[in-house]
Structure formats: structure tokens, C-alpha cells
Nucleic acid binder design. Structure first.
Length: 325
DNA sequence: AAAGCCTTCAACCGCGAAGCT
DNA sequence: AAGCTTCGCGGTTGAAGGCTT
């Protein structure tokens, strides 16, 4: 028997999402948390497949997402992580809070690839392009940029070099990742651990040298609010022993709500179909009108609505949207 | 002004992994 | 253990807007 499609595609809508659909999805996820994407469109009243809903949420609607171009710092991290991990965009994204794999992948393909090529670096192998020597002879600035990318300043010497490449050896680009992994002499799991444990950069100042004001990302209000920790923790690795950037930033964590859902549903034999008919599991729906008005308030920026919030919506909104106003 | 080309990025597709029964 | 379901990932597509001619 062949593989079943992820959903019954008959009558399902495809293509760009409308504001109305977004609203429905946000409302549903914030109220019920993330579980069983297959059931989401049905329960949220959307003519989409679950996969489409998940993608829309994770890549666009999630409140902890940053918007706008990647900063110079983020770009540098992407390049270094790509050198270590290859096209494992989700792994790379996990090192960049508020960024999605799709976003990073797109940015890589549209911006970074070109930038690297322009600088005489092969974006696949992270090696100098064959004619790069000639180019850099003609353009010392490019050489300098290249050195900045691959040779961090002395203060960053403890930063793990992504690749230990023998430039005399002809290497198959496809084998490059294998080589880098082998050279680091770590297993898959440990590799990740090592990357996480390796201080990427010493200070923000070092990272931002050469930062162009015309490349300042568009800062969304939620970006301003996200780090709850003292500002020093975000700029100095010495102030934080945590290897998890997300933890350092104390980003809003939405998983806990799934736990809430799960625990409230555990009385119900983990039956997804029943989850949505169980009163305890959908307690927040009791305040549906209130919640929707909050949601409308969030979306429409109408500040007439200031009624009491549920614990969940307060947590969520404290984390991102509510702090905006 | 408009036709054609280029760039960007949201969204889709297919596959593999993980979890469940 | 095997089959099925769901999720997550990476590659690809296509619509929309910008740019060039």
C-alpha cells in the first residue's frame, strides 16, 4: 500500500494565506497549543491541510519570530554554522533564536551565497574559489573580508574553526561535511553538543565590526521585548555559562502549554479526537469571547480592551505582544 | 509606458524519522 | 515486529514586486 497523503486534499485551499486564515490559526494555537497538526485545520475552521498550518505557524505566525533581514552577526553565525553543519537548516536555525530554517535557507540562497561568491569563497565548500587568488590579488579589500570571515581576531581564537581544510587536496564538495565532522572527531550528537558548547564569539562589538547601518534589520516590537535577561547577558558570553542561546534569551516557551494540554488531557486517554470535546482541555474556550477580543486587540492594536486575562494568554502576551503598548 | 527579466521569499512537495497501535 | 500516522526537514516552485531595456 502506498503512502497516504498527509490529508484529504479535495477542497483544500492552497497558496497565500489570508489575514482571516491567519487570525483563525493564531486564535486556535494560542488557545489550544500545538498538537496534532492534522486536526488543527478541521478544529480551527480552516480549509488547509495540517502541514500547511504547521508551516504557516512555524515560519510566519509564531510570536517569538524575528522579522526583517538577518543582522551581520546572524549572517556570520549562519556562515560558520553552515561550514560545520552543511545544509542542515533546522540545526542552523536552532542556534539563531527567532529565525526559522526556511528563512535562513532563503537568506542563504538569495544573499549569503552571492556575497561569498563575490568574496571569492565557494558557498558549498567554504573554500576559496579556483580563481579567487587572482581576484583577491586584484582586490585586497575582498581578501581582507575573506580573512575576517575565516580568521577571527585573536580574542576569538578559542572559537572553533568550522573547517580544517587542507587546501592542497582536491576535495569533493559533497564530502566536505564528512571531512569536517571527521576532523572534529565527534559523533553526530557530540558534534551538536560541541557546537552548542563552543562560544561563537566573544563580544558583540567584535561581531559587529564592519556593521553597516544600511543593513540594520527591521526591528519588530517583539524583538525589542524578547530578551528578558539583563542586556549584558546577550552581549557577553562570559556572563552566561549556558550553551543554549534560547535559554539565555529567556524566550517565551510555548511548549509548556502543550504540557498543560497534555496533562489536562491525560485524563482522557490521549485521544486527540476527544481532546477538543473535553471541557477541561478547552477551558480557555470558556473565555472565548474574552480571548478573541484580546486577540482582536492584539491584532488591531485597539487598546479599549483591558479585561482580565487567562494565565496562558497573560504569559504569552507578557512575553511578546503585551509589552508593546 | 510596457514588456521582459530578475530577485525575493512564502508556500508546497516528497521523503525519512519517530512514535504509536 | 510490522504497519500506519504524524511530524520535521530540505529542496523546489511560483507569485509578486522591482528593475532594466
Amino acid at each position: 500500500m502506498g503512502r497516504q497523503p498527509c490529508c484529504d486534499k479535495v477542497g483544500l485551499k492552497k497558496g497565500p494565506w489570508t489575514a482571516e486564515e491567519d487570525k483563525k490559526l493564531i486564535s486556535f494555537i494560542l488557545t489550544n497549543g500545538q498538537y496534532c497538526w492534522r486536526a488543527v485545520p478541521k478544529l480551527a475552521g480552516l480549509l488547509r491541510c495540517g502541514k500547511s498550518c504547521r508551516l504557516r505557524w512555524t515560519n510566519y505566525l509564531r510570536p517569538d519570530l524575528k522579522r526583517g533581514l538577518l543582522s551581520e552577526y546572524e549572517e556570520k553565525m549562519v556562515i560558520d554554522l553552515h561550514a560545520q553543519l552543511g545544509n542542515r537548516w533546522s540545526k542552523i536555525a536552532s542556534h539563531l533564536p527567532g529565525r526559522t530554517d526556511n528563512e535562513i535557507k532563503n537568506h542563504w540562497n538569495t544573499h549569503i551565497k552571492k556575497k561569498l561568491k563575490k568574496m571569492g569563497i565557494d558557498p558549498i565548500t567554504h573554500k576559496p574559489l579556483p580563481n579567487a587568488n587572482q581576484q583577491t590579488q586584484n582586490h585586497p579589500q575582498q581578501e581582507q573580508q575573506q580573512q575576517q570571515l575565516h580568521q577571527p581576531p585573536e580574542e576569538e581564537q578559542n572559537y572553533q574553526q568550522p573547517l580544517q581544510i587542507d587546501f592542497d587536496t582536491e576535495v569533493d564538495p559533497n564530502k566536505e561535511l564528512e571531512i569536517s565532522v571527521e576532523s572534529s572527531n565527534v559523533s553526530e550528537g557530540k558534534e551538536e553538543e560541541q557546537i552548542m558548547a563552543t562560544p561563537q564569539f566573544e563580544t558583540m562589538d567584535q561581531l559587529m565590526n564592519g556593521f553597516c547601518t544600511d543593513e540594520v534589520p527591521i526591528i519588530e516590537p517583539n524583538e525589542i521585548l524578547m530578551p528578558c535577561a539583563p542586556s549584558s547577558s546577550a552581549t557577553s558570553t562570559s556572563s552566561s555559562n549556558s550553551t543554549n542561546i534560547l535559554e539565555d534569551l529567556q524566550l517565551p516557551d510555548f511548549e509548556w502549554f502543550c504540557d498543560y494540554i497534555d496533562s489536562s488531557l491525560s485524563n482522557n486517554n490521549n485521544n486527540h479526537e476527544d481532546k477538543n470535546t473535553n471541557n477541561s482541555s478547552v477551558a480557555l474556550w470558556d473565555d472565548d469571547d474574552d480571548f478573541i477580543s484580546k486577540l482582536n486587540w492584539l491584532i488591531s492594536e485597539d487598546d479599549d480592551c483591558d479585561g482580565p486575562l487567562t494565565q496562558f494568554s497573560r504569559t504569552v502576551t507578557d512575553s511578546w505582544a503585551f509589552g508593546l503598548f
